[in-house]
Design a protein around this nucleic acid. Structure first.
Length: 670
DNA sequence: CCCGCTGTGATTTTT
DNA sequence: TCACAGCGGG
């Protein structure tokens, strides 16, 4: 690592290896480079690389850091550094020590939708006829509680409520299924470290230097985890983050972790990185002028050595259609006139629904685009089905997977039978698979159903044996399983046309290829690892080449844009009620809304356009809108207001009549 | 089992 | 308006 590439504060952060260190890394200030340099420096100072642990939130960040470490130090040393996400780290801890908590080591990890399904089931079972509870609402509440370290309703009174009862039941069911959800990974890891001195000692002995990225996004459990892992007195914990970019409070992230770092780790070295290498001056000053209005924050001021640049623009459009047309027309013009590749442009918005008008406008002009987010590869039905088969073979107590598998394909075990088996399993406190096989259960069934169950159970047995035979190839066995179960046939039957079946079976094929590659690399226990990795990393790694080659405008939510940067950025919907969002007023999270806009502004390298409209089509009606109160907080010296009527000199389009109408309507409404 | 009807609710979503 | 879950009928 070339330390002379670093600026003074960065260098200070790198060289302070002992005790707690807080690096306040403003947007675009070279955070990752500083962390990487610090790891390299530790190694150059003689710290064994296997004693270094770096924790991130996303797999993407972990991959990136791993790669950069590999470039900074000798490969054989880089390999020994542990770079992991919070969740993956917890899986490692739990795979070794979860038995101390009464789970089995081969537990299944439920993703969001698995968990939702289970909660839906439980509500169905627990709720009285006149009671209603949205599964997602319950799931959110449960998640929030768990993120605070609570693993059961805190009082009898609470258990009396439907939500409380569902919570209690959900935790109990998970344990019975030998399954954990994402929050459990943290919760249980903290628990096992907290309650078992030997476990804590083991993990503390392993890592002597801890680094945590995006510390402003940590929740209470994650802070607890760090505290349990941090060894030494004072502990060598280096956290990196930016309180101004804390935008995940609604998911349990607790800014006070970074704001009150000194309380958790006394007498830290605090270094602020303020020199920004991304944006031009006006953009940074605009961002500074906004974020200044937040009361609780660590003072810092981004600056650039690269000059003022172009002033950001503020555009007020008559309605959302015009807003979209304006943004697209502008980026089209710039892209065209200056031959800027489309991937240097991004359109940012608060809610996913806002992307539609932009999409339409881009399509009209034949401009390629990509939408970040949306349905992932692993949410696809056929992929979930195959993974359910594999999970079930590894953990036959996993009823959620069993329920999925039992009806894909339909095999003569219908809903009624499953319902009865479920009741039986609850009554007799056994798993669903055990219930299906129980002689007492068979008593009440028709002969045909009994036979169907026998066939199914025998089928599972057979493939369990084959899958875990020595030298068995997982991918091959799975292929046979999908054929022999009739799954593929059923999949084909369910497809509208040949093309759809090709798409779906191709997806499965890809998955199995991944599995094959994975098994070749890892020795034993490879299937569990494979499933773990998939549950924790939803990103289907497209070929990097493919990704790079693809050019297109990025359409992305404000949240998802954090950490990214683009030459030209358009931020839509700076309106009261949208940004800040309506709900933030009730929830008292105006600061976080402000940070959200701050994050958006600081994404731009060269040029920034902020847009709002006076009327927005919502639920079929044009509603009058007011410009965001945040606009008043922006320093007028650092942006210019675009006069709509003068600016819009575009060729008259078919939309002209409509927009005049909309404008009139908006005027009348406002 | 599949389809279409009806009612409902509608931020953000690293893992 | 629109998407989607939950249902009743064919």
């Amino acid at each position: 690592m070339r330390l002379f590439d670093l600026n003074d504060p960065q260098l200070r952060a790198v060289k302070q290896t002992q005790g707690p260190v807080l690096i306040l890394a403003g947007a675009g200030t070279g955070k990752t480079r500083t962390i990487t340099a610090r790891i390299a420096y530790l190694i150059s100072e003689g710290v064994p690389p296997e004693h270094i642990l770096a924790v991130t939130f996303t797999n993407k960040a972990a991959d990136e850091m791993r790669e950069r470490v590999a470039h900074a130090v000798a490969p054989e040393k880089a390999k020994l550094v542990t770079v992991s996400t919070f969740h993956a780290l917890c899986v490692r801890i739990l795979r070794q020590d979860i038995e101390k908590l009464g789970y089995k080591g081969n537990f299944t990890i439920y993703d969001q939708s698995d968990a939702t399904g289970l909660i839906r089931q439980i509500i169905h079972r627990v709720a009285a006829k006149d009671e209603k509870l949205e599964p997602s609402v319950a799931q959110n509440a449960i998640s929030k509680a768990k993120n605070l370290g609570v693993d059961a309703p805190s009082s009898d009174a609470e258990t009396e409520t439907l939500a409380g009862a569902v919570f209690a039941r959900y935790q109990r069911e998970l344990k019975r299924l030998n399954a954990v959800d994402f929050d459990d990974l943290l919760l249980l890891a903290v628990k096992v470290l907290r309650d078992h001195d030997d476990v804590r000692a083991k993990w503390r002995g392993r890592y002597h230097y801890l680094m945590v990225d995006e510390f402003q996004d940590t929740n209470r459990l994650q802070l607890d985890l760090v505290r349990h892992l941090a060894a030494g007195e004072p502990p060598n914990v280096c956290v990196v983050g930016d309180d101004d970019q804390s935008i995940y409070g609604w998911r349990g992230a607790d800014v006070s972790n970074i704001l009150e770092f000194e309380r958790h780790f006394p007498r830290p070295t605090v270094v602020a990185l303020e020199q920004n290498y991304r944006s031009t001056g006006h953009i940074l000053d605009l961002a500074n002028s906004l974020i200044r209005h937040n009361p609780r924050r660590r003072a810092k001021r981004l600056w650039s050595a690269e000059g003022e640049g172009k002033k950001p623009q503020l555009v007020g459009a008559p309605d959302d259609r015009e807003e979209a047309l304006y943004a697209v027309q502008e980026l089209h013009r710039i892209g065209h006139d200056f031959a800027v590749p489309w991937k240097q442009f991004a359109v940012l918005f608060r809610t996913n629904a806002q992307s539609r008008l932009i999409e339409e406008a881009l399509r009209e002009r034949n401009i390629p685009y990509r939408i970040v987010g949306g349905k992932s590869f692993f949410d696809r039905r056929e992929i979930k089905d195959v993974l359910a088969y594999l999970s079930l073979l590894l953990n036959t107590a996993d009823d959620v997977s069993l329920l999925r598998v039992i009806q894909a394909p339909p095999r003569g075990i219908g809903e009624a039978t499953v319902e009865r088996a479920l009741d039986f399993s609850i009554e007799h406190k056994c798993g669903l698979l055990a219930a299906l096989q129980h002689p007492d259960f068979h008593g009440v069934l028709a002969k045909k159903t009994r036979e169907a169950i026998k066939t199914f159970v025998a089928f599972l047995d057979r493939f369990e044996t084959r899958m875990f035979e020595p030298l068995a190839k997982y991918a091959d066995v799975t292929k046979e399983l999908l054929n022999e179960s009739g799954y593929l046939e059923d999949l084909k039957r369910g497809c509208k046309d040949e093309a759809e079946f090709d798409r779906r079976s191709e997806a499965i094929h890809e998955l199995l290829l991944d599995l094959e590659r994975h098994q070749e690399k890892s020795r034993n226990n490879g299937l569990r690892e494979f499933l773990d990795k998939l549950s924790l990393d939803r990103e289907k790694d497209e070929d990097d080449k493919e990704k790079d080659a693809k050019d297109g405008v990025t359409l992305i939510t404000l949240h998802a844009a954090k950490g990214l940067e683009f030459d030209y950025v358009y931020v839509l919907g700076l309106e009261e009620g949208l940004l800040p969002h309506e709900r933030s007023k009730n929830e008292g999270t105006l600061d976080e809304e402000r940070r959200l806009l701050y994050v958006a502004i600081t994404r731009a390298r060269k040029q920034l356009t902020l847009l709002y409209c006076r009327g927005r089509l919502r639920y079929g009606q044009v509603l009058p809108r007011q410009a965001s109160s945040f606009i008043r907080e922006l320093d007028t010296r650092h942006y210019e207001t675009v006069n709509w009527h003068q600016q819009v000199n575009a060729p008259v389009e078919e939309s002209a009549g409509l927009s005049a109408f909309a404008r009139m309507k908006a005027m009348l409404g406002g």
